[in-house]
């Protein structure tokens, strides 16, 4: 039991940090520009594919740097030449633009790399068990992922609080109009944030793509889970996104272990109903089956009862 709790904690931490890497950029984009970027997961996928392609030529490590930069440049271009021209048509058009973009990116990825998964593998140097705790291996690569994501969190935190551009971004998060009145180049900041956010997603793709699977549907697979993070975390709050990521990681991880269903619960009280039809299905469901859909329930309830999110400064 102890080992199970220990490893589930590590698992939830890791999954949470991966979620955070994805959602940190999205939170910035969403809070500043009001765009629900449906193509964010596509940048995650592009990060993985770029890293795979680069690793074919020069190995994993250069890819770790180059791939996110490429994705960032691509993101900036998308903002400059795509989103900005759609901006005048309003938020719905911007959002639908990103939906269409996600769609096209998937098709283009298939055209270039084919429909099957590409063999993007963990670098040999990190492919070993670092320590064995309570009988379970902790692989070096997972520790590496954890280190990269924590490093990214610290870096992001420093940029936002210590640098000039970070302060402008912070201000634009809450008062975008005020910032532009003060004479700052808000479109330029938008481009930077969109590019930077995409690069962060790309970095998550580089280190997540080989841990998971690099395939054309990986963006769609990831689905709207990142939106859950930004809603639960709250508008404009990186700390909120951080907490929400870890929380969601924990919910999903620990729910798996709870193999209790409603009928078990009723049995505790000596009730053993034998229903049929819909009720039977309902009583049969174990908490563990619901792990991956709990976040959505969480998101809907959050939006209904606390639309500010956990740490939000204003309503979504």
């Amino acid at each position: 039991m102890l080992e199970y709790i220990f490893f589930s904690t590590i698992n939830s931490l890791l999954y949470g940090m991966l979620l955070f890497m994805l959602s940190s950029g999205l939170t910035l984009i969403f809070s500043m520009m009001g765009i629900l970027n449906f193509a964010h997961a596509s940048f995650f996928m592009l990060g993985a594919y770029f890293a795979y392609q680069i690793s074919q030529f020069v190995g994993f490590w250069p890819g770790l740097v180059i791939a996110p930069l490429l994705v960032g440049v691509l993101g900036a271009l998308v903002e400059r030449y795509g989103l900005r021209s759609v901006h005048k048509h309003g938020h719905v058009a911007e959002l639908l633009f990103t939906v269409g973009l996600a769609y096209l990116i998937e098709e283009i990825v298939m055209l270039i790399w084919g429909r099957n998964a590409v063999p993007y593998q963990i670098p040999n140097i990190l492919d070993f068990a670092l320590v064995n705790i309570l009988g379970t291996d902790l692989s070096a690569y997972r520790v590496f992922m954890l280190v990269v994501s924590i490093g990214m969190f610290i870096f992001l935190f420093l940029v936002l609080t210590r640098s000039r551009i970070g302060l402008i971004i912070q201000a634009a998060l809450t008062h975008p109009d005020g910032v532009s009145t003060l004479g700052h180049n808000v479109p330029g900041v938008f481009m930077l944030v969109f590019g930077g956010g995409s690069a962060l997603a790309g970095l998550a793709g580089v280190i997540g793509g080989n841990y998971l699977i690099t395939e054309p549907s990986m963006a769609a697979h990831l689905g709207p889970i990142v939106f859950v993070v930004i809603v639960v975390g709250g508008m404009g709050s990186l700390t909120g996104a951080f907490i929400a990521s870890l929380l969601l990681g924990a919910i999903q991880t620990f729910a798996v272990g709870v193999q209790v269903s409603l009928s078990d619960l009723l049995a505790l009280f000596g009730l053993t109903p034998e229903p049929s039809g819909l009720l039977k299905d309902f009583l049969r469901i174990q908490i563990s089956h619901t792990g991956p859909i709990l976040p959505y329930l969480f998101m809907v309830l959050m939006l209904i009862f606390r639309p500010k999110g956990l740490m939000g400064k204003r309503e979504t």
């Binding site: 490893f7 589930s8 698992n11």
Partner: peptide, 10 residues
Amino acid sequence: KVKDFSPYIA
């Protein structure tokens, strides 16, 4: 829907 199977592995 499952991205990380580590909990199941545990």
